[in-house]
Simulated scan of single mutants.
Amino acid sequence: MPAGSFLKWEQIADGDGDVYEDEGNDVDAVTRAVRTPNAARLADLAGPVVRVEVLREFHVHDQQAVLKAARSAGWEPQPHDDLEGEDPEDVIGAIMWLGESDSEIEGADTVTDTSQGLRLHTENGHEVADWSEEAVVADFGAGWRYTAAVRRGELVTPSMRKKTPDFAALFATEALHCDDPECEEERCQWQLTPRTADILYTELCVLADQAYEDSEKLGDRPVVPDQHDGQWGVFAYLPKLTFAADLQWRRRFARAADDLAGDLERGQWPEPTCTAEELALHLAIRDAGDRGDEGDDAGDHGTLPTHRDDYDFDMCSEVSFQDTDVLMLYNSRFDGIEDPDGETNQHMGIGDLRVAAWFEPFLNVQARDPRRGFRR
């Protein structure tokens, strides 16, 4: 309130006539009650309620500088009796105080700074934190560096490898007829080798896991490239016409990667049956090619037999696709080419590449079982 204002005790006790400042405007208690009633539960609030979860990590490289900066900003450490033994100077409190600002912290560097949002719904069992019966837990998923390390084969845990199929048996190679790379004998033609199949299977599994995780976090929200690059492992890297897709579409894309991995588990070449599977396989082959021979002897992978055709992902790409029309969606020159009624689309015989048609089975392959469900 302005300096020199007076308020009757009855007004304070009853809240009648209470005034507070809202961005420079005085708002009376009636308006405040309509907007956000005190101690309201989720069901009492008419408008949408959004929970923002923030994860920030700081490396304190100069502890005294951090403490000095916090004190200069008005912070006071907790009494020694309240502090834990490993933090006698309340460095955690100093970082929490300074971390409320977006400015750099003297004596500390930011290691992680990310956030995610969730709209609360009573029908989903949500409740505002103050009234929640359960602890509010935020899941930011596996770190992107960890995920990348798994993809490159640098981190392979026994639990991950337990479920790996026996690719040596599933994709047993025939002995070469000769050493001539130009030989046209069938045994000298390119073969999908156990090592290539293993790497491709790993990439498809990682792609599916990332897509499922990103689906849960994104929900029905659109992808905003400038905000989400580097945050989402999959959907920020699909063609832009998919950015407004909903949760169910994203889950189906994750399943498309799972379906292709399932082909390899059964000893079959991964054959795309729809546009979504085509792009998922393109992404997996790309990531497998970027990996190259790095870590090719790690874990059980190193026990697989070697072959001349190992890691030839260019040839893998050449034999896996009927065409590469879906990649044209990345080129702004071809904006609108996804429409089957468009002149260019019809001239080139591309077909329907609109988002809603990505899971329609191709006419010249056997469709997946529509009752197969989702892995997670």
Rank of each mutant, 00 (worst) to 15 (best):
Y311G: 05
A138L: 11
E338C: 00
R145C: 01
V224E: 15
R286V: 02
H59S: 04
R266Y: 14
S115C: 04
D214G: 11
D300E: 03
Q11A: 13
G15K: 08
D90E: 01
W131I: 00
H282S: 05
W144V: 04
D209W: 01
P340Y: 10
T306L: 06
V224F: 11
T36C: 10
R286Y: 13
P361G: 12
D81E: 15
D166S: 08
E106V: 01
A129C: 04
Q116T: 12
L260I: 02
E278S: 13
R354T: 15
C183I: 04
E213P: 03
A208R: 03
R354L: 05
G47V: 10
R252Y: 00
T147S: 06
T147Q: 07
E294T: 03
H59E: 06
A29N: 05
A43R: 11
N25R: 14
Y20Q: 03
F243E: 04
A284C: 07
A168Y: 10
L327S: 10
A367K: 15
G373M: 05
V137R: 15
I95P: 11
R371F: 08
Q191H: 10
E23T: 01
S103K: 08
G292K: 09
D87W: 15
M348Q: 04
V136D: 09
L192N: 00
R32V: 05
R250D: 01
L83F: 08
V27I: 06
E104L: 07
A168L: 09
G125P: 15
R375P: 00
D290V: 06
R151M: 08
D109Y: 00
G292H: 01
D369F: 09
S132Q: 11
M1Q: 14
G99T: 09
Y212E: 05
E154A: 06
P239G: 06
T275Y: 02
A70I: 05
T202Q: 10
I285N: 02
E106Y: 00
F6R: 13
G141A: 08
